[in-house]
């Protein structure tokens, strides 16, 4: 394994990074800091020290508290406007120096532990289309929708600022259409697709190498040398998912995956349970993604996908797909 992965309780996020942004936003709403820090085990004094680091679970608790406040209905979108490139050390600097969209998105994925520790981005480019898929990093539970809005707004706003123009992103949300979609419309645009299987942002791949006016490839190379030690660090959940994506054709088992991480199956099970999930759920999630990609870009039929994913036959694959998504396997092909 390259860099050790982090857990929901790893003290990873310096208090003056994302947490300070959330605190400042709450202050702007005249929200009392003890309301914001409730159940997080934090005190306002913690933010005075540059050395203090928060766990993802603590940052998550702050966001959940903020979301409960009536005046914070658009908090995800307001915070998203400022979240990236952010002021998170060399990783933010690297984003600022990105010469184009492609390099910015790759930096975001490589340095997710610094830039977006709560929600993991995964970049795939196939069939002339870029897809940036978002995955829960640390067991967000009910706060996941807020995180998705926050991170999609953050990437959209960052690209608009650094690239100097609006990009024609299309947004897919794995939830039903909200009754009040106005914040999505204003901050993301009108290409909103609710009720999808994934949380992803998509774009024509020709935008990837359009030069950005502030980009500086030479400076970026220097910054990336500084970042080499922490590149590739991700959450346990995302590390397991990546391993599943890599071994999806074996097919993966709990035993093999635990072995890859150098722990016993019981330990891995316990660690996943602490993040509110389990091995089969992650495997189903990854297989759903792979299936949708194969259907959209691979042009494969059910028999071919079933054999790719090591199902006995197309019928058992269709049954499984229906279980993962609630959809008949015919519909995504359409």
């Amino acid at each position: 394994m390259p860099a050790p992965c982090y857990h929901a309780d790893t003290p990873l996020i310096p208090a003056h990074y994302q947490p300070a942004l959330v605190l400042e936003h709450a202050r702007g709403l005249d929200l009392n800091s003890h309301v914001l820090l409730r159940h997080s085990g934090l005190f306002e004094e913690d933010f005075a020290s540059e050395a203090r680091a928060l766990s993802p679970a603590q940052l998550l608790a702050m966001l959940a508290n903020l979301a409960q406040h009536d005046a914070a209905r658009d908090a995800a979108f307001q915070l998203g406007q400022q979240m990236l490139p952010g002021h998170y050390g060399a990783a933010s600097l690297a984003l600022m120096q990105s010469p184009d969209l492609g390099s910015a998105l790759r930096l975001l994925v490589a340095h997710q532990a610094q830039l977006c520790p709560l929600l993991a981005p995964r970049l795939s480019i196939a069939g002339g289309e870029v897809s940036l898929d978002w995955f829960d990093s640390c067991g967000a539970g009910a706060t996941k929708a807020l995180l998705v809005d926050l991170h999609m707004t953050a990437v959209t706003a960052m690209c608009r600022w650094l690239g100097g123009e609006h990009l024609p992103w299309r947004y897919h949300f794995n939830r039903t259409r909200p009754r009040s979609p106005e914040h999505h419309q204003v901050h993301l645009g009108s290409a909103l697709h609710f009720g999808e299987q994934t949380d992803s942002m998509r774009l024509d791949a020709r935008w990837l190498d359009q030069p950005w006016p502030r980009g500086n490839a030479r400076a970026l190379a220097l910054t990336q040398r500084e970042l080499a030690d922490t590149a590739g660090r991700r959450s346990l959940l995302q590390a397991v998912r990546e391993q599943l994506f890599d071994t999806i054709r074996l097919p993966p088992t709990l035993e093999h995956t635990a072995q890859h991480f150098g722990v016993s199956p019981a330990t891995l099970k316990r660690q996943l349970a602490r993040h509110g999930t389990h091995f089969q759920a992650l495997l189903d999630e990854v297989r759903t993604h792979v299936t949708l990609q194969l259907m959209q870009h691979g042009g494969l039929d059910h028999d071919a996908i079933a054999s790719h994913l090591r199902f006995h036959d197309a019928r058992s694959f269709r049954r499984a797909f229906q279980r993962w998504t609630g959809l008949g396997a015919a519909s995504p092909c359409a």
Binding site: E165, H166, L167, P168, W169, S190, R206, W207
Partner: peptide
């Protein structure tokens, strides 16, 4: 809301 968007942001919009 669709009509008010800047042209490049719409999917299919031209590179500008």
């Amino acid at each position: 809301n669709h009509a008010i968007e800047p042209a490049a942001r719409r999917p299919g919009g031209a590179l500008q």
